[in-house]
């Protein structure tokens, strides 16, 4: 039984995160989490509070063969739980978030001669809503807002690209208020698999040169269909 009294529920969440519940109690909490938002919030809050303690355990290299075993298990799964962002999904997402701007851009993209391999992506929100169209163009990138929405007051949106294999994203600058962004060739070389994301940052952009705020929108550059 998961208690409804907030104080008792919070104590249960605390002990769950601390790890002192026995197998039966821990199982009850784990089963209740998906359907009990109050419990989920309490557990998340305790995980945030105690998280720094996890790093008191000294890091230790795992056995060298472990990754191979993980790969075998991944391949043996009945179905892949993730849906790759493919062009087909791109068009679905597009249809879902269709606006006059999107329709106009679609016509433009479809009618444009394919003189170079075209790459594009739609940046999705955390709830998978299409938010930005990104297109590689002339060695640079062009962004158009599909569903313009106001930025949180006193914050800025910053654009980043992470080339495949790179360990650190490259800042492509702040998103201007009009939502129109062009990234000149040379700042980044668009390639398939490149992650494009927009994070929420302090005014003027990330002070560290790396993303510091939550990811608002993200997508992966892929060859457009037909190219």
């Amino acid at each position: 039984m998961i208690p409804s009294d907030p104080e008792v529920l919070d104590a249960l969440a605390a002990e769950h995160v601390l790890g002192t519940l026995d197998a039966r109690e821990a199982g009850e909490v784990a089963r209740a989490l998906p359907t009990n938002p109050a419990l989920r919030d309490a557990v998340a809050a305790w995980e945030r509070r105690l998280a720094p303690l996890a790093d008191l355990a000294p890091p230790e290299p795992p056995p060298p063969g472990l990754w191979g075993r993980i790969e075998d298990s991944l391949a043996a799964r009945p179905e892949a739980p993730v849906v790759p962002l493919r062009p087909s999904r791109f068009w679905q997402a597009w249809a879902g978030g269709s606006t006059a701007i999107a329709a106009g851009l679609a016509a433009f993209l479809l009618l444009r001669p394919a003189e170079e391999p075209r790459m594009m992506t739609v940046l999705l929100t955390s709830s998978d809503q299409p938010a930005w169209l990104v297109e590689a163009e002339g060695g640079g990138l062009r962004l158009a807002s599909l569903n313009p929405r106001p930025v949180e007051q006193g914050r800025a949106q910053q654009l980043w690209a992470l080339p495949p294999g790179a360990t650190a994203p490259i800042s492509l600058g702040l998103i201007p208020a009009n939502g129109q962004v062009s990234v000149a060739p040379g700042r980044v070389r668009p390639e398939p698999g490149m992650l494009i994301e927009i994070t929420l940052e302090p005014p003027g952009g990330s002070p560290t040169g790396r993303p510091t705020g939550p990811i608002l929108f993200i997508g992966r550059l892929a060859p457009a269909r037909g190219s």
Binding site: P84, L162, L195, I218, G219, R220
Partner: peptide, 10 residues
């Protein structure tokens, strides 16, 4: 960033 990449099937 990598977790979002995993979610997107990168």
């Amino acid at each position: 960033l990598l977790i979002r990449g995993i979610a997107l099937g990168e």
